[in-house]
Design a protein around this nucleic acid. Structure first.
Lengths: 398, 398
DNA sequence: AAACTTAGGTATTTCGACGAACAAAGATCT
DNA sequence: AGATCTTTGTTCGTCGAAATACCTAAGTTT
């Protein structure tokens, strides 16, 4: 029944892109390892590796340790072979970064903006700043290979524009690539903010999580979904829009979406700010509430914990439905992780079924504030360095 | 940006399995069409087609209509090249069938059993009956190429056994393949009942639905999930276990799982039966309630519609989360589709967000009572006739 | 220092796919 | 009716890629 040590799953032989994927993932560092993993002969491995070297994506590093014979030459992914530009656009703040090909941030910058800024106003600023960042790095940095952009709301990834973003009026249907044509001719990829965040989490040790749910709890609430190892966007790109799921605790409370009873209206960051303001406290952003909580403010902590409880109720339905391996807690509220997750755990373990929770891990995001830009870069890299894209690249250079 | 009429998406050339997939899906019926779709030369197409013919999976049919020259020879998937045995095991009833390679039922049979029957008791009965059905078909039918089995509860698809089925005590951890070793040496595939049902729906015209949610509303409640074109089982195979998601309407009501507040406890078939029994009505199974409703019984209809409403509430959260293209309504309650879905629509459209519902289709299952066996057969066929499996087969025969 | 082990490169052979030429079978034109 | 055109499918020569076998390089072990 079980497979017998098959070198590869498919019948068709491994391409240059497949070999690159192994090197990039760190699964193979020597030619021999590539041969073992792909089932390719040494000559075939050598041919693919040399074309990858010619492309600059792979370099030979120092020699490895001998295992009783000639030491192998270590191959590694050349993360300095280029850069990715990335922008995480929020309602009131946009984060910009330049990352290496591993997706690690080289330089980053924040841009504050008025709520309601149109793409015609904001996008040229982003283009200018990205260009400035790029020039600041000098000639040592590689050429841009792609641009990744994240937006709140539903995104049309085909056209590269916002599709339905109630919080960003004027953005729907406006393709963003043209605004960046002057910066570089590298391809532009756009996706939802929670979607790219979950991609940012599936790096390094967390790469093997095939079923992952990221909850982004900031001003609004969103989720990013990886099922079967693949980011899921749903039919119209609206997957993960959990902020307006109805919950008993919000019965009768009006939400900013115009409806009543949404989870956001009681557990979203804006609701916490509203509640504290009603108590006469001076807060304007969920980050202020977090700051208060971290400073020991009892009421702020209570609210964040209560938000965790309410989100846990909605999340328990999602856990039953999807049975993920891990839930990642991200967004501004992740800055008060212990308090928030204490509440989340209460209702999650109380409401979700045993099979779905017994091995469930709950973990904080790994990149914190930089999750948006790291995720946007990761998304762009997933496209640009995909097996097919690398195959195309190698076919062209030949 | 958009692809320029690329013959195929990957760089590696199409294999025999790929060609077979095209023929099976009806996307290509002539050698020329295969050439156009795969980018393969006429000689390469001929080589693959002839080996497929040798395997018996593909046959030449009558000539097609000429388009101004020599008429093409029509190729078609030979659905009589073999059979699939399938069993849909329920708590009190098991359905058996023999299907052709298209997954269409040739003969079917029902086996009633005591609730709580162990695998050691039931599985030999299934084996005997399947063998008898097979013999009844005579020598004209092809050899079995696989067996598909569906079970309620969580299933370990690797080991081919139940993993966590509170409703089927004694089944957990018992591999089912050995019980069928005498019937045939064809491979045995096991999965959850709602999972195979959603596979049964993704046939024919509904094949292109990449994001599909099937709700199985029978005695219990379950869901089958297809996201990104792939059946999703979750980390432990527990995906789709929505029956025990908590809902406000069930507050304080004890569920058969031992917990309180589960949706099943107010909207599951067993809850409807319990409610009618409390009113002194003589019903023992949800099918009795359906029969009453179809005969015009007002109370039964009210209950079914109310069940739809409550399930719609839970489902709206799932719709927000997954943004499927289509919701398929299956299970016994689908027999009273209009009544049930009337209730479902009320709360679904009321509670789910606009983007997720504006293009959402709600459709009844296509195979009715036979969904379980059709789905089990489809699952087995998806394995046995997969690109990789066909490639292996062709490599062997050579 | 000799033998062994492992890594990596270099010829030869083999396999498969492509293209061209050819044969088959019908449509269309004269 | 016969000639020509169009499309399909097959046969044969050519070419390219990869596997095998052989060889060199560079270590470890005895």
């Amino acid at each position: 029944m079980a497979c017998m040590r098959t070198p590869r799953s498919t019948t068709s032989p491994a391409t240059g892109g497949d070999v690159f994927a192994l090197i990039r993932a760190g699964l193979a560092t020597t030619r021999t390892e590539i041969g073992n993993l792909t089932g390719l002969s040494r000559t075939a491995v050598a041919a693919r590796v040399s074309s990858l070297q010619a492309s600059g994506l792979v370099v030979e590093r120092e020699e490895g340790v001998s295992t009783g014979g000639r030491p192998p030459v270590k191959l590694s992914f050349h993360v300095q072979a280029g850069v990715v530009l990335s922008a995480a656009i929020g309602r009131s703040r946009t984060q910009l970064a330049i990352c290496d090909l591993a997706g690690d941030v080289i330089v980053a910058e924040d841009v504050e903006q008025e709520i309601g800024t149109s793409p015609a106003e904001l996008m040229p600023v982003i283009a200018r700043r990205l260009l400035a960042l790029r020039e600041g790095l000098g000639e040592t940095a590689g050429r841009p290979v792609g641009i990744g952009i994240s937006l709140p709301g539903t995104v049309d990834t085909e056209r590269g524009c916002s599709l339905n973003s109630p919080m960003m009026s004027g953005w729907d249907g406006v393709p963003l690539q043209p605004f960046l044509a002057d910066v570089t001719d590298a391809p532009v990829f756009v996706d939802n903010d929670a979607n790219v965040m979950v991609l940012a989490e599936r790096r390094g040790e967390r790469r093997d999580f095939a079923d992952m749910l990221l909850i982004k709890a900031s001003t609004g609430l969103g989720a990013g979904l990886v099922s079967g190892g693949v980011l899921q966007r749903g039919a119209l790109g609206a997957a993960g829009e959990i902020g307006h799921t109805k919950t008993a605790a919000a019965q009768g409370v009006v939400c900013r979406c115009g409806d009543v009873g949404c989870i956001e209206a009681v557990a979203g960051g804006w609701a916490l700010v509203r509640n504290l303001q009603e108590q006469g406290r001076e807060v304007t952003h969920i980050r202020d509430v977090i700051t208060l909580a971290l400073a020991g403010d009892a009421e702020a902590r209570r609210m964040i914990r209560e938000s965790g409880r309410q989100i846990g109720e909605v999340l328990s339905g999602a856990i039953n439905l999807l049975n993920p391996e891990v839930v990642i807690v991200g967004g501004d509220m992740a800055q008060a992780y212990d308090t928030f997750v204490a509440g989340l755990r209460e209702t999650l373990y109380g409401n979700a079924i045993a099979v779905a929770t017994q091995q469930l891990q709950i973990l904080p995001w790994t990149h914190g504030e930089l999750s948006g830009v790291v995720g946007s870069a990761t998304m762009a890299l997933d496209h640009v360095l995909s097996v097919r894209a690398v195959d195309r690249l190698l076919a062209q250079q030949k």
